[in-house]
Structure formats: structure tokens, C-alpha cells
């Protein structure tokens, strides 16, 4: 009973996209939408199959994912480190926070011309941009999370004789975790966005490159396919973050199922 209910609930979310696909296909087949403007879903599926068989799709997804993740790991860990340091130490905060807040107000994509001058269109350019984009949401939310840890709990930990390390791992970090996850999910969104832009402007491989190549040859089906794959990868990353959230925040009333 409960299982079927759950399936039904999940299915309702997919009903609207299914209807949209259907209408789209019909409109394309009846000539309502010109093939130069938009490819029919069946044409996109065909393109998917063709590129899958040629290995081009897998290779490009692999390249893009590797870029996204390495940029994310670099930027995310630096952001986490600064967030923790500035949350725990007033000296560190005084020293770096103003600077970081100033840099944060520059849209990181505005640095693309400069980045191309520095790194050319090599891998470093994309890693740099992704890392920079990911850094700030993680940094800001980690800092916020640590600052919003209940001071009464920290006082309790001190009275009960917790050492600084124990206090950090038992009280401060778990208390900051919900905010860190918010930052993580924001960062994942920014990670894909940055990568798409970077790959579209300057790249010789990857999903963005594939889409740009297809545009050159007027392969509208491939362009649409690339966009859909971006959407799927973004959704996948978000689901992964939510899964992590559910596993680590079991105690949180918002994650408890009655």
C-alpha cells in the first residue's frame, strides 16, 4: 500500500514532463515547429543513440564531469577551509573576510577574458573558473553555519570538559552541517553553470564543445541533447547532495519521517 503510494507520488512529478514531450513531438511532426528551430524528441533520441554508439557522448560527458568534479573539490575544500577558519578564529576572520567579501561581489564569469589570457583554453582555465565559482557558496554558508551554532550548546560542552577538538567534532561541526549542505547544493548548481559557459566559450572537448560544434553544422538535435544532458547531470548532482543530507541530518526534524 505504502510502496504503491510512494511510486504514485514520484510518478506525479514526471507527468508534466511526459505531457510536454508528447505535445512537442506532435507539434514537430505536424510541422508546427520548424526543424530549423527545434528538433523533435524522437530526433534527439536518435542523436543520443548515434553519439552513444560512436563513443563521442560518453567521452564528452566523462571529460565534462571530470572537470566539474575536480574544480568542485579544489574550490569546495578551499571554501570549507576558509569557512571553518574564519568561523572559529576571530583573527583569521578579521584578516581575510573583508577581502573575500569584496572578491565575492565580482561575477566570476566576468573573469573569463582574463582567465583565457592567463591559462589559454587549457584545462586550468576551466578548473580555475569552476573552483572560483564553487568557493563562495561553500565559504559563506560554512561561516554562517559555524556562527549560528547555538552558543548555549558550546557553553554546555565547555562545562562538561570537552577539549577543543571534541567540541569541534561533537558540537560545532554537526551544528554547522545543515548550512554547509545548503552551500553544497548551491555550489553544485554553480559548478555546472560555470562549466557550461567555460566550455562553450573556449574548449576543445566536453559537452559544451559538443554543443558548439553541433551549432556550427546546424545539428539542432545534438544541441538539444547537450542541453538535456546538462539538466540531467545537474539533477543527478542535486539528488546526490540530498541523499547525503538525509544520511547525515537524520536528527533534524525536517528529515524525520513519522
Amino acid at each position: 500500500m505504502k510502496a504503491t503510494g510512494q511510486i504514485l507520488k514520484n510518478a506525479t512529478g514526471w507527468a508534466l514532463p511526459a505531457v510536454i514531450l508528447l505535445v512537442w513531438e506532435i507539434a514537430a511532426r505536424t510541422g508546427l515547429i520548424s526543424p530549423n528551430v527545434m528538433a523533435a524528441p524522437s530526433a534527439v533520441a536518435e542523436a543520443f543513440w548515434r553519439l552513444l554508439l560512436s563513443g563521442e557522448l560518453i567521452r564528452n560527458i566523462g571529460v565534462s564531469t571530470a572537470r566539474a568534479l575536480s574544480g568542485f573539490v579544489i574550490g569546495g575544500s578551499i571554501g570549507l577551509a576558509f569557512g571553518l577558519a574564519n568561523g572559529l578564529s576571530g583573527l583569521s576572520r578579521n584578516l581575510t573576510d573583508t577581502t573575500l567579501q569584496m572578491v565575492r561581489n565580482i561575477p566570476h564569469l566576468a573573469l573569463i577574458p582574463l582567465v583565457i589570457l592567463w591559462f589559454g583554453i587549457d584545462e586550468q582555465a576551466k578548473l580555475f573558473l569552476v573552483a572560483l565559482g564553487v568557493f563562495f557558496p561553500i565559504y559563506v554558508n560554512t561561516l554562517l553555519g559555524i556562527q549560528s551554532v547555538d552558543p548555549q550548546l558550546v557553553e554546555m560542552g565547555r562545562v562538561y570538559g570537552m577539549s577543543r577538538t571534541t567540541l569541534f567534532f561533537r558540537v560545532i561541526l554537526p551544528g554547522a552541517l545543515p548550512a554547509i549542505f545548503v552551500g553544497l547544493r548551491y555550489a553544485l548548481g554553480i559548478m555546472w553553470l560555470t562549466l557550461i559557459v567555460a566550455e562553450t566559450i573556449a574548449a576543445s572537448s566536453g559537452l559544451g564543445y559538443m554543443a558548439m560544434q553541433a551549432r556550427e553544422f546546424l545539428l539542432i538535435d545534438v544541441v538539444v541533447l547537450s542541453i538535456l544532458i546538462y539538466a540531467l547531470l545537474g539533477k543527478l548532482a542535486d539528488s546526490f547532495a540530498r541523499l547525503l543530507e538525509r544520511l547525515t541530518l537524520q536528527w533534524h526534524p525536517a528529515f524525520q519521517t513519522a
Binding site: 548555549q152 550548546l153 557553553e155 554546555m156 560542552g157 562538561y160 570538559g161 570537552m162 577539549s163 571534541t166 561533537r170 558540537v171 554537526p174 551544528g175 552541517l177 541530518l249 536528527w251 533534524h252
Partner: peptide
């Protein structure tokens, strides 16, 4: 002042820190 992220028994064990 219980730790919301620790189960009841774990919260009591905080009293035995050290």
C-alpha cells in the same frame, strides 16, 4: 541543552567526557 544530533544515550554520555 541536549545535542540535537546525538541520540539520547549519546547525550547522556556527554556527562562522562574525559
Amino acid at each position: 541543552r541536549l545535542l540535537p544530533w546525538a541520540r539520547i544515550a549519546k547525550n547522556v554520555e556527554v556527562g562522562l567526557t574525559g
